[in-house]
Design a protein around this nucleic acid. Structure first.
Length: 152
DNA sequence: GCCAACGTTGGC
DNA sequence: GCCAACGTTGGC
């Protein structure tokens, strides 16, 4: 069982949208490192933080579970879709996605600022400069520490 | 809206 | 296969 942090822009799709939808496919991954990670390392039942990026208050807003294995991202075949990719062929899909299931919103937002202020989390990928991966793995230790911050 | 950091592309 | 140019991400 692994833990993840998954970024999305709330203007595009945020935690409240997932709360409403209950489950949704996490499409639009167009980075090979991230694709390989969801293909090789992610499993059904893994837990993930829903992180809001590129917004007024970047940070962790909620929890979700991974609800499927990686499967072809059909938005890559759709010429009208934002993330259409001419290189992805239906017979040989270049891009994958997983389904995520809403668990709950955090009682309070754990902001990026707060994450950065904790020396315990200095190893975490999201707090490191120049990290641009939309999905990163979170260690069990960091996962539990972050959840403990919710109670403070 | 700026810009640093990083990934991708493509000429050679 | 190198690397400059370009595009994207995302915090600020």
């Amino acid at each position: 069982m692994k833990y993840w942090l998954m970024k999305n822009e709330p203007e595009d799709y945020g935690i409240d949208d997932l709360k409403k939808d209950k489950t949704e496919h996490w499409d639009g991954i167009r980075n090979y490192q991230v694709r390989n990670m969801i293909r090789d390392d992610m499993s059904i039942g893994d837990m993930a933080f829903f992180y809001h990026s590129n917004c007024e208050i970047p940070g962790i807003y909620g929890l979700m579970t991974i609800n499927s294995k990686a499967y072809p991202d059909h938005t890559a075949f759709d010429k009208k879709a934002k993330y259409y990719d001419i290189k992805s062929d239906k017979n040989k899909p270049a891009w994958l996605m997983v389904d995520v299931k809403y668990k709950r919103k955090l009682q309070k937002i754990i902001t990026l600022k707060e994450l950065k202020s904790k020396k315990e989390l200095s190893e975490m990928r999201v707090v490191q400069k120049g990290n641009r991966l939309s999905i990163t793995e979170v260690s069990k230790k960091d996962w539990e520490y972050i959840l403990s911050l919710e109670k403070k």
